[in-house]
Nucleic acid binder design. Structure first.
Length: 796
DNA sequence: GTAGGGTTAG
């Protein structure tokens, strides 16, 4: 709304000046009414006002109140103009004051009602039976019980306390302000109750979620009516009591669109989306007229059910019923189409929508992200007129969901510059990006940010923090977070169990699992992925077998492909190749790539070249594009000196365009994540790193290190093989770590593949020679190197 | 001037 205070009065003045000469003064009610009716533009209205001033008719109480009544409905004028009209009346009556107060509520400014009411009392006007309900309503909107209580006192003083209308408004005010006690007290002591009183007190209990109290009132009320029944349906809906809700719905004499909407939404809250849609079509067969609210619920069910066709039908209904300009409905449609992958339809809606709100923009960005169009999402994000915390979170989270973790952190840093503060949801994405990047410093910074701003560490945030610290190798801090959480939830336990295992603390992990069982939290599928993973890391074959059995027998959890994969890996690593193979054959589902890979890896580790070759060949047939299988098979060939086969395999890879994913190690230094590829020379500090590698090599040799060249699958000279080894990405990262950080800071490295045997050996020796802790997180787990030993006890 | 339904964005 535009404020036109200044110019309005200027115009009014000039009109008044002119009016004396040019226009007939208005001096009767009938002329006034007809002149006001004809007003199309603000200036015409001002002319009428001017004409009344010249005639002095403006002082007439009734005439002025008519003028005032029209002025508040005219959005071109600020209410201060209407105020002015009121002040020109000598003794305005209650109706006039009421009109202005109601106008303030209508224009979203209820805060001006009480001051106006005080002015009214200060003048000689006396409130009528309409005045207090308006002021009470204003307090209710503002949730100001203090104000409401004051007006309540006035109600008593003026003797309106047996006016049922006033009383109902008071009951509603107390309920809205959360004071159910006084609402009930008022209701109980009231001498005059009508149906609205019953509906109001019922609504109060429904709002507060007092199921038993609401049922009691509903049963007691003199007459069941549609509004009360609708409230009850919605209450039962909220508590997932579908049957109770349906009973009420079924027994209703007269159902309206609200009843149907409440029932549909009740099904949705219990995730019974098909039933919701059935209700919707029943409603249509019964000829109930549809409004925009019920459409939203129906659309939501279609979205959840992926019922594209139904959604399109509803879209048609929306257009036919003329609801398409309703922005919330537009947004729901955008959401539905993009959730179903129809980004074109979503975009058309967005482009042709006449009115877009914040949610429209946010939904469209989320829609692009859901359809994998990250670049488009970012373009829209950059173009949007204003960004709120959801916009930022959507985009930041979108990067994280699409594995673009560097971008996640960059955008988060950009967000810091602006005025919008991140909330729990934003931080979850950011922390998870830190976990993926092993960016411990950044992760710690975010944790400190959370503490500093006293952001509530909820289940999600806590779990993500635990996961991040575990994945960065900071077991202690992870456990601190866990211990500090009030509400843990299964995911926090899972994060701890798999985190400990991943960090080589297998016994601790299994102990935590036992704690969890004892504390009465029921494990789920993911828990057992962690538990079996723990057994696998330590080669605990028997324990693994036991847990695999108990997950089914004690907890009734059917093992999924991941659990089977774990077991195959567990057997394979332990050298029980026969059992691993048999286990695979017993799987009720097709083994996934990881399971086959585990078997192949086991063959390689235990020198089962023949089975390995068979499995490898089979795998390459199954997954001709998978680089890892080619590499493993090549390594199996290489280990027996079959260089011809190695070369052949490399030829096939070339032909098929299979690229070996290069080893890549990351290390964070001063909050910046540095990336090294195997053989990489692109780092700006390459010269220094080279020197360090040279020194490292020399130190390693004097410490008795023998390069392990068995995994170098090239038919090249031994010396060259050694050089290749020295330029493995993790060695480059270690070298960089040694020059860019200082003791006792551990060197933390994350590698995309599994660490190779040679680098493992070298890291052990470096940790002793340089007195530096080295923590390597590879694709599978952690290796904490300290004083020449590794936490994995060389079993990995 | 009082009482009932909803959801769409992370």
């Amino acid at each position: 709304m535009k404020l036109v205070t200044g110019p309005v009065f200027q115009t009014l003045k000039s009109f008044t000046r002119d009016a004396t000469q040019l226009m007939k003064p208005i001096s009767t009610i009938s002329i006034l009414e007809s002149s006001l009716q004809k007003c199309q533009r603000p200036n015409q209205f001002l002319q009428v006002h001017a004409q009344m001033i010249t005639s002095g008719f403006v002082k007439d109480n009734f005439a002025a109140s008519r003028l005032l009544f029209f002025s508040v409905g005219c959005l071109f004028f600020d209410l201060s103009y209407s105020h002015q009209i009121l002040f020109q009346i000598d003794v305005p009556n209650a109706f006039t004051w009421n009109t202005l107060m109601r106008a303030y509520i209508w224009r979203d400014s209820p805060q001006f009602c009480i001051p106006l009411y005080s002015l009214m009392l200060g003048s000689d006007s006396v409130p009528d039976n309409f005045t207090h309900p308006i002021v009470i309503h204003a307090s209710a909107i503002r949730s100001s019980e203090v104000e409401g209580k004051q007006i309540h006192a006035h109600v008593k003083k003026f003797g309106f306390d047996s006016d049922v209308y006033v009383l109902n408004t008071l009951i509603n005010m107390y309920s809205v302000c959360g004071n159910l006690y006084d609402a009930q007290l008022l209701f109980d002591s009231s001498p005059v109750l009508d149906l609205v009183s019953w509906n109001t007190i019922l609504a109060a209990h429904v709002k507060a979620g007092n199921v038993n109290e609401a049922i009691r009132i509903y049963d007691q009320m003199p007459e069941h009516n549609t509004i009360a029944a609708n409230s009850m349906i919605s209450l039962f809906g909220r508590f997932n009591c579908v049957n109770d809700a349906y009973k009420i719905f079924d027994e209703m004499k007269a159902r309206d669109v609200v009843s149907w909407t409440a029932m549909i939404s009740c099904y949705e809250q219990s995730e019974m989306f098909t039933e919701a849609l059935v209700m919707f079509s029943r409603m249509r067969t019964e000829g109930v007229s549809l409004d925009e609210v019920v459409m939203i619920s129906a659309l939501s069910a279609c979205t959840k059910l992926c019922a594209t066709r139904n959604g399109e039908v509803i879209h048609g209904l929306i257009i036919r019923n003329g609801h398409e300009s309703y922005v919330n409905l537009q947004n729901a449609l955008i959401h539905m189409y993009s959730s179903h992958g129809n980004i074109v339809a979503a975009q058309q809606l967005f482009d042709f929508c006449s009115f877009l709100d914040q949610i429209s923009w946010n939904s469209m960005i989320a829609g692009y992200l859901k359809c994998g169009l990250v670049v488009e999402a970012r373009a829209l994000f950059d173009a949007m007129p204003s960004k709120d915390v959801v916009s930022w979170t959507t985009m930041i989270g979108g990067y994280a969901q699409h594995d673009q973790f560097m971008e996640t952190l960059e955008l988060f840093n950009e967000m810091q510059v602006g005025p919008i503060r991140p909330d729990e949801t934003t931080l979850v994405s950011v922390i998870s990006a830190c976990a993926h990047l092993s960016a411990l410093e950044q992760g710690k910074w975010v944790h400190a940010y959370i503490k500093k701003n006293s952001i509530d560490i909820n289940i999600f945030l806590g779990t993500t923090l635990i996961d991040m610290y575990m994945k960065c190798g900071s077991v202690e801090t992870a456990l601190e977070v866990f211990n500090g959480m009030k509400d843990r939830g299964i995911s926090a336990w899972n994060a701890v169990i798999s985190g400990l295992a991943m960090n080589g603390l297998v016994m601790e992990s299994l102990e935590r699992f036992a704690d969890m069982e004892n504390s009465g939290v029921l494990p789920n599928e993911i828990t057992f992925v962690g538990v079996l993973g723990a057994c696998r890391h330590a080669g605990l074959v028997d324990e693994g077998r036991q847990h695999f059995k108990s997950m089914q027998q004690t907890y009734g959890i059917q093992p999924n492909v991941k659990h089977y994969g774990c077991m195959v890996d567990l057997f394979g690593r332990a050298g029980l190749l026969k059992e691993a193979e048999e286990f695979m054959e017993s799987m009720p589902m097709t083994p996934d790539v990881a399971t086959w890979g585990a078997l192949l890896g086991a063959c390689k580790k235990h020198g089962a070249t023949e089975i390995g070759e068979q499995v490898g060949k089979k795998l390459i047939e199954l997954e001709p594009q998978h680089d890892g299988f080619h590499v493993l098979l090549a390594n199996i060939y290489a280990s027996t000196g079959r260089w011809d086969d190695v070369m052949k395999l490399r030829g096939t890879m070339r032909k098929r365009g299979v690229m070996k994913i290069p080893g890549c190690s990351m290390i964070e230094s001063n909050g910046v994540v540095h990336e090294f590829l195997a053989g990489d020379r692109t780092h700006p500090q390459m010269e220094k790193i080279d020197k360090m590698i040279e020194e490292m090599t020399w130190r390693l040799k004097t410490e008795g290190y023998q390069p392990d060249i068995t995994d170098v699958a090239y038919d090249i000279e031994e010396e060259e093989k050694e050089t290749t080894l020295y330029r493995h990405s993790e060695k480059l990262a270690i070298a960089f770590g040694l020059i860019s950080t200082f003791p006792p800071t551990p060197i933390r490295i994350m590698k995309n593949l599994r660490i190779c045997g040679d680098c493992h050996e070298a890291a052990k020796i470096i940790s002793r020679a340089y007195q530096r802790e080295i923590i390597v997180r590879d694709r599978q787990r952690f290796h904490h190197f300290r004083l020449g030993l590794c936490s994995c006890t060389d079993f990995w």
